[in-house]
Design a protein around this nucleic acid. Structure first.
Lengths: 102, 102
DNA sequence: ACAATATGCAACCAAAAGGCAGCATATAGT
DNA sequence: ACTATATGCTGCCTTTTGGTTGCATATTGT
């Protein structure tokens, strides 16, 4: 059940804010991403690592700073998984509805 | 940040399995949903409650048993949110690509 | 060379989450 | 009526998570 780790990583307000900042390109380094979150730099770094471990964010070191980038492939997996759940659920509901209308 | 609660609810293998079962209509009552998960009935019930609190599952009591149903509206919110993240990220990447190609 | 900046790593702590056993209650089947 | 079934509720325990402080290191700007 790979997907669970992705959702788990997204299931925290601070981590979700990080992803939001990355998606809008408001921050691109660890330092920038860690500011104004209401927690310490080290705390923020720990949260970022959760995103990295879930393959939602990727790190690239450049000199003394480290660039952070989103991995949209991973996000797509999550999105597709939910879409599939919805389709399966609705398909059966529609089948039932059709049956009742006959 | 409402979305975080939805992802948090989906971010556990057992809860995700429950959602999967519901989506494929393999189980529809609390009892059926709680079997063969590797944990006790009480444990499963607690996990189910997380899905209910996140508005991913709904409960409807019928006599001595309780029906469980998915709330696809909530799932759609999660799906749309990820789609938006991807679009924002890619839009800027494409803009950069265009700029470099000029 | 020196100071400032960007980051890493480990130890520690409190709170939340995940899971269990035990007991109670209401409904359904015989 | 009696038994089995479906479920609820509470208290307890262990593990995980979210966060901190303190200290170390490497790179950059002056």
């Amino acid at each position: 059940m790979i997907e669970a780790e992705i959702y788990k990583a997204l299931g925290d307000p601070i981590r979700l804010e990080m992803v939001r900042r990355l998606s809008t390109h408001q921050s691109s380094t660890i330092g920038a991403l860690s500011k104004n979150l209401g927690i310490s730099r080290q705390g923020a770094r720990k949260q970022l690592q959760v995103l990295v471990d879930a393959n939602i964010a990727r790190l690239t070191q450049q000199g003394r700073e480290t660039q952070v980038a989103l991995d949209t492939h991973t996000l797509k997996i999550a999105q597709d998984f939910i879409a599939k759940l919805e389709r399966q659920w609705d398909a059966r509901l529609n089948a039932l509805k059709t049956l009742l209308e006959e």
